[in-house]
């Protein structure tokens, strides 16, 4: 397969970037999007050009490192996939593919397609935990949890922290990310004691980091590679108002 790649290149956080167009031939349909870019880099290095910087690690959709805005979609046009699992067979031979970094004030570009997502860590740090120290835990089965609640908590906690929700949102809102964490703990009895403090702190930090607000458009849900549901945002809102 053959592609025309229009990729955002930016030296560092302070430089101005621009698109650079590359023609790439010899792409196999079973390559993943990341493998295609690695292949591009190998050819660029061979020609003495500078390779494109982008993040990727596990290649199985679970670490959350990869993520780029491909032809108008975070993680590309196929639902439920991270960039590393997106196969080239989903693209048409000869197609032009425009690749941009996540765009959001709290995700500044570091270089090319790599962005800084420390803001997510900061939000989690504000309260995304249960304060039980090593040694203080009761016997695991001493806390029965309704299976349904536990399953819903799991569905929320599969978030990989990739930032696609923010990238997809017209407001660059982090509500889906935050709601997934809040929901996980709200649905489990272990999380209840700190519930109110947690939701207050995480929401305050989310605003402080400069994320936008939620317009309930559902773009985040549509683009989440782990298909985390919008109900979690409703739950977050509920938890927030109960906290005051």
């Amino acid at each position: 397969m053959k592609f025309k790649l229009k990729i955002w290149k930016q030296r560092d956080a302070h430089s101005r970037g621009s698109f650079v167009t590359y023609d790439l031939d010899g792409v196999a349909p079973e390559m993943s999007f990341i493998e295609m870019l690695t292949y591009l880099n190998e050819t660029l290095i061979g020609k003495g050009d500078e390779p494109v910087t982008f993040e990727h690690d596990c290649h199985e959709g679970i670490c959350g490192s990869c993520g780029m805005y491909i032809n108008g979609y975070p993680h590309g046009p196929v639902k439920g996939l991270t960039t590393c699992l997106l196969s080239m067979r989903y693209f048409k031979d000869g197609e032009t593919i425009v690749i941009e970094p996540w765009r959001a004030k709290p995700f500044p570009v570091i270089k090319d397609l790599m962005v800084d997502r420390t803001s997510f860590d900061k939000i989690q740090q504000a309260g995304g935990f249960i304060s039980i120290s090593v040694g203080a835990a009761p016997e695991a089965n001493a806390i029965p949890v309704r299976k349904h609640s536990s399953d819903l908590a799991f569905d929320a906690s599969v978030c990989i922290g990739c930032g696609a929700c923010v990238a997809a949102c017209k407001n660059a809102s982090a509500m889906l990310f935050v709601s997934a964490k809040i929901s996980q703990y709200a649905l489990l009895p272990q999380g209840r004691p700190e519930g109110k403090d947690r939701v207050r702190a995480m929401i305050a930090e989310m605003d402080k980091q400069g994320f936008g607000s939620c317009s309930n458009t559902g773009a985040c849900e549509a683009q989440c590679p782990k298909q985390i549901k919008l109900f979690n945002i409703a739950r977050l809102n509920r938890e927030y108002f109960k906290a005051y």
């Binding site: 249960i130 835990a137 695991a140 806390i143 949890v145 536990s150 799991f154 489990l188 272990q190």
Partner: peptide, 13 residues
């Protein structure tokens, strides 16, 4: 297992 359960890891039930 006790510790992970206490800090909110949703193991299957």
């Amino acid at each position: 297992i006790d510790h992970f359960t206490a800090i909110g890891v949703p193991f299957a039930r």
